[in-house]
Amino acid sequence: MAPILDIKNLYKSYGATEILKDINVAIEPGDFLVLVGPSGCGKSTLLNCIAGLEPITGGAVHINGKNMTDVSPKDRDIAMVFQSYALYPTMSVAKNITFGMKVRGVDAATQAAKLAEVAAQLQIEPLLNRRPGQLSGGQRQRVAMGRALVRDPALFLFDEPLSNLDAKLRVEMRTEIKKLHHNLGASMVYVTHDQIEAMTLATKIVVMKGGVIQQIGTPAEIYNTPANLFVADFMGSPAMNLIPASVRRDGAFHRIEIQRDSAEPLVLADQRPLNLPDNVIMGLRPEDIAEAGFRAGAEVQEANCLIDMVEPAGADTYVVSQLGGKQVTARLHAETSARAGQAMNLAFDLAKVSYFAPETGERLN
């Protein structure tokens, strides 16, 4: 199957300043691609390059097998949903949704049929005669999505569409967009700085930093096997624990030694066939450090740790300990007996550990 979107060796500069550097990414029809990264990483610029709103400096953008590099936005078979909604304030909701079809000369009967179909899909039938000023943020977002849906494009582009909504509404609209993707089987590219949004929506994630792609993968790949320290730290809430450690070979396995301020070093034995240098950064997600007795498996090892802080969070309780000069967070069950200032046995799941090179930040296993 040919990719619906294929970006090859794309560069974007403003004068001498390179914004995007050698971007290569392709998605299949029906994929939901999320571009994620901190502010200023180039993700919105990349979306604008796909849309044709920004000219590219080098490389090519193919949509549906056609080179779109010199094609104007209106001829790219795309529909875009912006953060600002970009609705016409003097037009009714119905006219906002059908305006693009009217401009393209679509007949009135087709316009009416499309409008009815999309309004039912987004549950906005009661709003069709209102104006944007009479709508809530979530309702405006639905109208903006409706206007994109009636185009039935090859590619939907979303530029931080939920960032103006409050937290509860964001979650609802996220579910709505996921349902839409599932029901339509549409191809979507979505920009966000919210890594939870990225993990929830995507079939494929592109993590960006400084105009460079750091990793491309499924949500599970990005979360479980981050390519470098940046991805490990950026994706996940709370973030992955990144602990400096020294490594000693001991027969078939590695002894992982982590310094502690007021106690003997914490020593864990990793029995996987790895080739590690003398110093590493050990990465372990909070959920992979449990209370002793709550995690079974050949790779699980227990150690006594002093608890500095206990943070109840509803279904979970987070406890913080100091290891390797870093605050390390463990995710325990809500009824834990952990108390700040007291020691307790924690279970470390070494099957889930990622190792990174301290100098380069690259993944080692």
Rank of each mutant, 00 (worst) to 15 (best):
A148G: 10
V118E: 15
G138K: 05
R142E: 06
L122S: 11
M145Y: 13
P132A: 01
L149S: 11
V143L: 11
Q123N: 06
G137C: 03
Q123T: 10
P132Y: 04
S136I: 06
R130M: 01
A119M: 05
N129C: 02
V118S: 07
G133H: 06
S136P: 07
G137L: 07
L149W: 15
P132R: 10
Q141H: 02
E117K: 05
I124P: 00
G137S: 03
R142W: 14
L149K: 10
Q134A: 01
Q134C: 02
L149Y: 15
E125C: 15
L135R: 02
G138W: 09
A120G: 15
A120Q: 13
L127K: 06
L128S: 03
L128Q: 04
Q134E: 05
G146F: 14
A120T: 05
Q139L: 09
L127H: 09
A116S: 08
A144L: 11
L149Q: 05
A148Q: 11
G133W: 11
Q139V: 05
E117W: 12
R130C: 06
N129I: 14
V118P: 00
G137I: 11
A148N: 14
R140F: 15
P126C: 12
Q121C: 09
L128H: 02
Q123A: 09
A120H: 09
R130W: 02
R147I: 08
L127P: 05
L135S: 06
A148F: 12
E125I: 15
E125H: 01
E125L: 11
G137T: 02
Q123M: 14
Q134K: 15
L149G: 12
I124N: 02
G133Q: 08
E125A: 15
Q134R: 12
R147T: 15
V143Q: 04
I124H: 03
S136T: 04
A144T: 03
I124K: 03
A148P: 12
R131G: 00
R142G: 04
P126D: 13
P126S: 09
A116Y: 08
